[in-house]
Nucleic acid binder design. Structure first.
Lengths: 125, 125
DNA sequence: TTGACATATACCCATATGGGAATATATAAT
DNA sequence: ATTATATATTCCCATATGGGTATATGTCAA
């Protein structure tokens, strides 16, 4: 099986650095025309259109026509799942003290666990 | 050019749902043997080993040998870049009021911008 | 109508992928 | 030494990719 499509979910969509850059440009909350993004990021127009297409399929951006331009607007709420997911691990890098404490606890638990888990009467597989 | 390798950076590594699940299992901060992850997630062992390999190359997990097992431990700090990046957009979904206010401002600004930007003397491309 | 501008699409291509199955490697147990 | 256990590695394969270039589509201007 190949890798999941970039349009599968937000996680896949934002894996592309250039797509994150584009999101960054749209990050001011305003609508931007494709040409603006092209000029700002200096990425070939077809590439920008394609990336915006991916972001659109996932729902991260939405279009509106204005004359011959297509204005893309960020739908930042779609990024919330990523935020929620990674937030779970926030505690690991905030609060030095808390981290050190956790590390100590972890090790203590492991010392005990190892003794019982590695005993021959409790195989792992 | 093909898609960037999954081992390129954290964003690519966590694009895989199963890798996120594995991270979830290791999320208790303790070290887990491959077999434990296999049993918990019911994913074929070779798959687990491969995914752990990816996570390891990116630095999200680290190994330690204990007998015939390899114990994998989460290096959650490596997820911080993702957190930092997505945190930038947090304001878009927190605080209903703030969001509504922003939306209003945005629209007002756009109304003005459109008038001048779309005027023929200011082309976009 | 004709031409300029803005954006999207269609092709072509090299490449990394994740899954499955089989097998290799390493360590422990008997 | 032989066997069992735990994990990694190797192959094979179908497929989505992102870049580049060229072109189609759509809209405005003269």
């Amino acid at each position: 099986m190949p890798r999941a499509a970039t349009t599968t979910d937000v996680f896949n969509a934002i894996a592309e650095p250039r797509r994150r850059e584009i999101i960054g440009v749209l990050g001011d909350g305003r609508a931007h025309a494709v040409g603006q993004v092209v000029k700002t990021l200096r990425i070939p127009q077809p590439a920008v259109s394609k990336h915006l297409g991916v972001l659109r399929k996932v729902g991260i951006v939405s279009i509106s026509k204005h004359g011959q331009r297509r204005l893309y607007r960020l739908n930042a709420e779609e990024l919330k799942p990523v935020h929620d997911w990674v937030k779970t691990y926030e505690r690991f890098w905030t609060h030095q003290l808390h981290r050190i404490k956790e590390r100590a606890e972890r090790k203590a638990i492991e010392r005990l666990a190892r003794k019982s888990r590695l005993a021959k009467d409790e195989p792992n597989n």
